[in-house]
């Protein structure tokens, strides 16, 4: 619910990319959107289900990892089929990339806080696993919201900067949430 409010506010503030009609025809745009949306939904469900003490998040986390590998494989296939993006260094666009990274991290804060609150109210008995699932979910949701604003559709760019942003959020959640949600 909090995530949907965040997405609504993000779009209401007019932050959607101006070339959205064109982007809707690009496979890489749909790859970003569907992959991140799926990862966010699955890992979010895993995190919430594991708030019951008798449910372990470990099996769900394995499925999330499988989903990530599948997403990266599809991204690599899209990248390979295109092939005219230029050299890797140019494709990084590191200034824009850093901005993307910071925005994704900022967009992940509300879902991390929301899931942290749920963790505190729930009774997870594998706090590390639940925190990891919550981190994946929050990071993927932050990136999913950002997909609507990000003008870069190059799979290599998305892989590097989105992965960095998601890793940052997940590591933070993995370290902070178990301490904050001790019960």
């Amino acid at each position: 619910m909090l995530g949907i409010v965040e997405l609504g506010l993000f779009l209401a503030f007019g932050l959607m990319r101006p070339d959205m009609p064109m982007a809707l025809h690009l496979p890489s745009f749909w790859w970003k959107l569907v992959s991140l949306g799926l990862i966010a939904l699955v890992s979010g469900a895993v995190a919430i289900l594991s708030l019951n003490p008798i449910r372990s998040p470990r099996v769900g986390l394995r499925w999330v990892l499988v989903l990530m590998v599948l997403s990266l494989t599809v991204g690599w296939m899209i990248d390979a089929s295109h092939g005219d993006y230029g050299t890797l260094l140019v494709r990084l666009h590191w200034r824009d990339g850093l901005r993307c990274l910071c925005t994704i991290v900022a967009l992940s804060v509300p879902p991390v806080a929301g899931l942290g609150l749920l963790m505190r109210r729930g009774a997870p008995t594998d706090r590390g696993g639940t925190a990891m699932a919550a981190g994946f979910a929050a990071a993927a949701w932050g990136a999913f919201v950002f997909v609507f604003a990000c003008p870069f559709d190059d799979p290599f760019y998305v892989f590097v900067w989105y992965s960095l942003a998601c890793t940052t959020v997940t590591v933070f959640a993995g370290i902070a949430l178990p301490r904050l949600t001790r019960w």
Binding site: L51, N52, P53, G122, A123, W183
Partner: peptide, 8 residues
């Protein structure tokens, strides 16, 4: 803990 988490 049982008391606090009984809603789960």
């Amino acid at each position: 803990a049982i008391h606090e988490k009984r809603h789960t």
